[in-house]
Nucleic acid binder design. Structure first.
Lengths: 178, 178
DNA sequence: AAGTGGCGGTACGAATAACGCACTTAACCG
DNA sequence: CGGTTAAGTGCGTTATTCGTACCGCCACTT
């Protein structure tokens, strides 16, 4: 869990009331968990459920949104939504480099929507989504084929997507709100 | 897009006022577009922007949620969230079967969160997410290793996920709200 | 062609929730 | 040990949502 924050000192709060309430990072986590089910759930309700004040929920959610770790969005029916197919890449990391390093590099690229470190034939499985074919080719050339930290690249063009439980490929484009 | 509805008869409404306002299906679509950016946007604001009453937005959103074509959820940043690592499968479809057929079969499985038909070494790239290891093994055995429509399976256990722009792996499980 | 039922939109008061701000508490740091 | 900062809380104000009744339109009935 990367919900770590700095302060871990709130054990006091925990015992402050009977109905144990989440402390520190767990609070953020608990809030997210509730919001994942219903993104419009009232802060006051959440506050009541977690035994904290409404203001706290508001602050935490605001902070998380600000920090970019949380977004509340509408999702239209996957069956009704069409998303462009992408490219799947199977990468073998070159000697002297680590999957982490490569992942760290690729992570920053907007076209890269998914990076998974795996065991087996590849080291990394990466999905790239791009609107225009030209961009894609340029991108592959620049970031993959001419990369020194890769020993082998296998490009598997996406032909059709049958299922995608996550979607939401590029909605993140407009981060500012209100 | 499957935003089609029945009634297309509201052309009258369209011209009823100066600031043209979305008609019929377009209204739903416009609402979704706004909510995709900010899932917590006030109905009253949306109403004002689209030149309809707040109640209408409320009704529409409620109906869409009811119908299951719309969900408003929180999404946590992949980098901050830890989700159990999954298994990536590279599948080669057996002679006499098609990727579509196999995909259609796998699509129904809850553990399967992603299916992509690709060109290259594999026919299908499939991601499986599962809480418990045992379930996963059983599942692989039952649905993949003993499947007749597959010629080859390559299992690539996920070691670590560096980026996942979509997430939302299993949230759809609880469709009802409030 | 009038009657009628259903569906969707609107209006408006009551109930709720969110916001802004001042205040308290607790940790951190010379 | 005070000063400083960051987070949580309480509360009055503002804004939004909810409940409900009403209206208009269309389709279907007889």
């Amino acid at each position: 869990m990367a919900w770590r924050r700095e302060r871990q000192t709130e054990a006091s709060l925990d015992t402050a009331r009977d109905g144990r309430r989440p402390t520190g990072d767990d609070l953020d986590y608990a809030i997210v968990k509730l919001l994942e089910v219903d993104g419009r759930k009232a802060f006051s309700e959440i506050a009541h459920e977690l035994n904290v004040s409404e203001g706290t929920i508001r602050n935490r959610v605001g902070r998380m949104k600000e920090a970019g770790v949380l977004r509340i969005v509408a999702i239209a029916d996957p069956a009704a939504t069409e998303y462009q197919t992408s490219v799947m890449l199977g990468l073998k990391v070159a000697q002297g480099h680590t999957p982490q390093q490569v992942a760290a590099r690729l992570e920053k690229e907007a076209f890269v929507v998914y990076i998974l470190w795996v065991a087996g034939r590849f080291d990394l499985v990466v999905e790239v989504v791009c609107d225009q074919q030209e961009h894609l080719l340029e991108f592959l050339e620049a970031e993959f084929h001419s990369a020194e930290d890769l020993a082998a690249i296998e490009v598997m063009p996406g032909l059709r997507n049958f299922k995608n439980q996550f979607l939401l490929k590029r909605i993140w484009a407009t981060p500012k709100e209100t």
